[in-house]
């Protein structure tokens, strides 16, 4: 891992010296050993403080939105899984590809103080879906391990599931960490921050409506969520928010065919595209649609 970090630093310095980039979005040492903090390096000297180790779990692509307002190209370190979020932002015109230099960095699974990150259990693989240069290494991502939680939830009765979510969502302290880290939550102004939308006041009026924050968010990111798992990773209350998103993805895949948001920035999300082969979802409760007998 140390050798990789050194190669990254050398590569960054070279790109800086070549005038290719004028700032670097990467990680630096955080408060604790198991903590690496996202950082923007604005000078060549600071590159020596760059850190890349098994604690760099966060996805840096969302920080790029802010960088787009500045002059010159920014270098960003992206792990294979981070490139999905990058592509999603690209497809929504939140990032200008010309202003970014992607340095793909290898990943062998990321950890926090409790061990391998939960999101790494559903790793999407070693492929970079976007990159300008890739740091070669023999590191390989961990093999996916199904959580089984989705099936458990699917098997519950509606009442049990309702109780499950009421319990989970009641833990929410509305810190907005999930929203702020989410690469699909990239609106300039979130509806929850816009008093005129009337949603903010509604989602606060009682305990249950507070819970609706997450439901509304799940709907807003549906078809755009890359299932990166960042929302669950950053939740201080350990709410399994990924389950809401996976349910949406499951429903969409079932109806419109498998679609992975962020895999290809040119691909169209099934929710904003109409194909003649699309099933006609009927209004009836359940999994309606026109039956072909």
């Amino acid at each position: 891992m140390h050798a990789i970090e050194e190669t990254i630093k050398e590569t960054c310095k070279k790109l800086w010296d070549d005038g290719e980039v004028n700032r670097i979005l990467a990680w630096e040492k955080g408060l604790f050993d198991h903590d690496a903090a996202p950082a923007l390096f604005r000078s060549r000297e600071r590159i020596s403080h760059l850190v890349y180790n098994e604690h760099c779990g966060g996805n840096l692509s969302k920080f790029l939105i802010k960088e787009m307002e500045k002059e010159g190209k920014v270098l960003v370190l992206l792990k294979p899984c981070d490139t999905y979020g990058f592509n999603q932002l690209l497809s929504e015109n939140r990032i200008n590809r010309e202003k970014v230099y992607i340095l793909g960095v290898p990943c062998g699974g990321m950890r926090d103080e409790r061990g391998l990150l939960f999101k790494c259990l559903s790793c999407k693989g070693n492929d970079f879906k976007a990159s300008d240069q890739i740091i070669e290494s023999d590191l390989s991502v961990p093999a996916p391990v199904p959580s089984g939680e989705e099936e458990k939830l699917n098997k519950m009765t509606a009442e049990e599931r309702f109780a499950f979510w009421r319990g989970q969502l009641s833990k929410c302290i509305r810190c907005n960490a999930c929203r702020n880290v989410c690469p699909a939550c990239s609106c300039i102004k979130c509806v929850f921050d816009n008093r005129d939308s009337g949603i903010e006041t509604k989602a606060n009026s009682d305990a249950f409506e507070e819970n609706l924050f997450h439901i509304i968010r799940a709907f807003h990111v549906a078809g755009r969520c890359t299932d990166c798992g960042e929302c669950s990773r950053v939740c201080p209350q350990n709410i399994p928010l990924y389950l809401l998103n996976r349910k949406m993805i499951e429903e969409m895949n079932e109806r419109y065919g498998t679609y992975q948001a962020g895999e290809n920035p040119e691909a169209k999300s099934p929710l904003t595209e109409f194909k003649e082969s699309d099933p006609e979802i009927s209004a009836e409760y359940g999994k309606g649609g026109v039956s072909s007998c």
Partner: peptide
């Protein structure tokens, strides 16, 4: 205009 992020979601549909 102050709320629009220019994501193109609207023009797609």
């Amino acid at each position: 205009e102050r709320l629009c992020s220019g994501c193109s979601g609207c023009s797609k549909v």
